[in-house]
Design a protein around this nucleic acid. Structure first.
Lengths: 289, 289
DNA sequence: ACGGAACCATAGCTTTTACCTATGATAATT
DNA sequence: AATTATCATAGGTAAAAGCTATGGTTCCGT
């Protein structure tokens, strides 16, 4: 059994004065209460701590041992409280950041190294998945912060817009196969564009699918077909891609999301700031180009 | 405010199951009680620890920190508790042994080195005074064990006879001054013998006093007068002393004493055994001489 | 020697705290 | 849409901790 911290502080005072009556006086409780408290403590430890005499009490060997450790134990106890508090007030702890792998490729390297260097007690794990799954995991508290596209409103969620992007059709500059579509069918953007194109009468003979946008960009760049890609991915392809004219466009909004109750967590504020800083400067740079 | 130990253990279970209802079940309390306990804990710490959801609860960052600290706190306490217990069950700790300096001179060197070598975690401090003061300090718990002469019975005291001795009058073998008495007047033995001799008509012109029996023995051995000495001290004088015939004798009983409540303390049992062993073998040797 | 003071333990009572049952509210699941 | 699962709240009850009064020792001063 674990004693109450109050009984421990009582014991420290008793060990100091070696007199229950006087210790009770100094502690602001009655002598019988202190007597009972010491009995409680002895029961919790399992061995006698005090030898009662008519001129006061003396510590047993076990009592001396406990007295020796009692202060540090109370310090640990206090540390339990303050440790939890500072985890909200200081930039430290372990956090999970989720985003689509393609987003990670073009943004994480821009702010993560600086963030890690600035805050040595900050630990980050990454998790990559579709935006809507990341968003679900943020809502479900499996992920602390997410960089996602077009998140749905949610009462528990705080959403910060970061930058805009366009998903459209791309092709290689020189030759390409216009009857083959290369895309990730799991993306809502893909589905939306496909629907619009179907209405508009576009017809594709075959579809190559991949869940990796970089792979799609690469195939498209090598003339494998028409690719459905965000502009930010198309721009980073190894060979230059060009927009397919007269095709529908899906406008993406990249956002940072996290749960409401984390808005006061300093570490998440720091992550937040780092991400938004990066997108502000990066957005300026890419739009300037 | 400092969190209560019960609430901390509750929290550890909650952090493990992440489900208040199931945790309450395992803890043997009702779900509302656990809900309130977690609210108490959060109030005590000052920050939210859990994010309540309809599929259970999730730890906040502060909750994760608290979980970590709470477990280490319980571990530390367990260590302190067993430490206090084993201080009774193992041969370790710091103990005060009291005895008359003359007793120390002829006995401590016989068992202390072996005792210290056998038990590296045992610490001993010595305290020298008159037997009756040592006995009083044992009773008053200022001394853990005493080697004393003719202790009075006391309800809190355990008394183990060690060996017998005789206090009598001694003189140098060759010449000595029979009108001078050399003694320690603070010893009850001295007072008793003086009383008997006074009744029997012995008269001494002068008395040399000292509170050190070895000094008395030395003076006696050099012909300074008649000395009142225990046989064990007289035997160890630098020159041989002889008993004064037809003089009263005071029979001493050397005893080991300690307080009742220490009878189960392993370290004192070890000290006890070492002392009694020494006196058994030593007594055999000296009586054999 | 004797009365008072000092000290710790116990008893009885009161207040505070923790706990339980019943119920509510809401989201997830079937 | 009904049901289930989950946590929160309300109100009453039981346990715990505290206080006052008292008892039984021992110590100390007169």
């Amino acid at each position: 059994m674990v004693p109450s911290p109050a009984d421990l502080t009582y014991f420290i005072e008793v060990a100091h004065t070696l007199n229950l009556s006087r210790a009770a006086e100094r502690l602001g409780i009655s002598q019988p209460s202190l007597s009972l408290a010491m009995q409680r403590l002895e029961h919790a430890v399992g061995v006698p701590l005090l030898t009662r005499g008519k001129r006061g009490v003396v510590l047993t060997q076990a009592g001396r041992q406990l007295h020796h450790h009692a202060r540090s134990l109370l310090q640990v106890w206090e540390g339990v409280r303050t440790g939890a508090q500072t985890s909200m007030r200081e930039i430290r702890g372990s956090y999970v950041i989720g985003c689509h792998a393609s987003v990670a490729l073009h943004s994480l390297s821009g702010f993560l190294p600086g963030l890690m260097a600035a805050h040595p007690d900050l630990h980050v794990s990454l998790r990559h998945d579709l935006s809507r799954k990341i968003a679900a995991d943020v809502i479900g508290s499996k992920v602390d912060a997410g960089i996602v596209v077009n998140p749905v409103q949610h009462p528990d969620l705080i959403i910060h817009p970061l930058c805009r992007d366009e998903v459209r059709l791309w092709s290689a500059v020189k030759k390409h196969n216009p009857s083959v579509l290369v895309c990730d069918p799991d993306l809502v953007q893909t589905q939306s564009l496909l629907g619009k194109m179907k209405k508009a009468g576009f017809v594709f003979g075959r579809i190559i699918t991949s869940d990796n946008l970089e792979v799609i960009a690469d195939i498209t760049a090598h003339g494998g077909g028409i690719g459905i890609l965000p502009a930010q991915v198309a721009r980073r392809a190894r060979k230059k891609l060009e927009q397919v004219a007269h095709a529908p466009v899906f406008y993406d909004e990249h956002c940072l999301i996290y749960r409401m109750e984390n808005r006061n967590v300093k570490a998440l504020q720091a992550i937040n700031a780092a991400i938004r800083d990066f997108f502000r400067t990066d957005g300026a740079r890419t739009s300037g180009n």
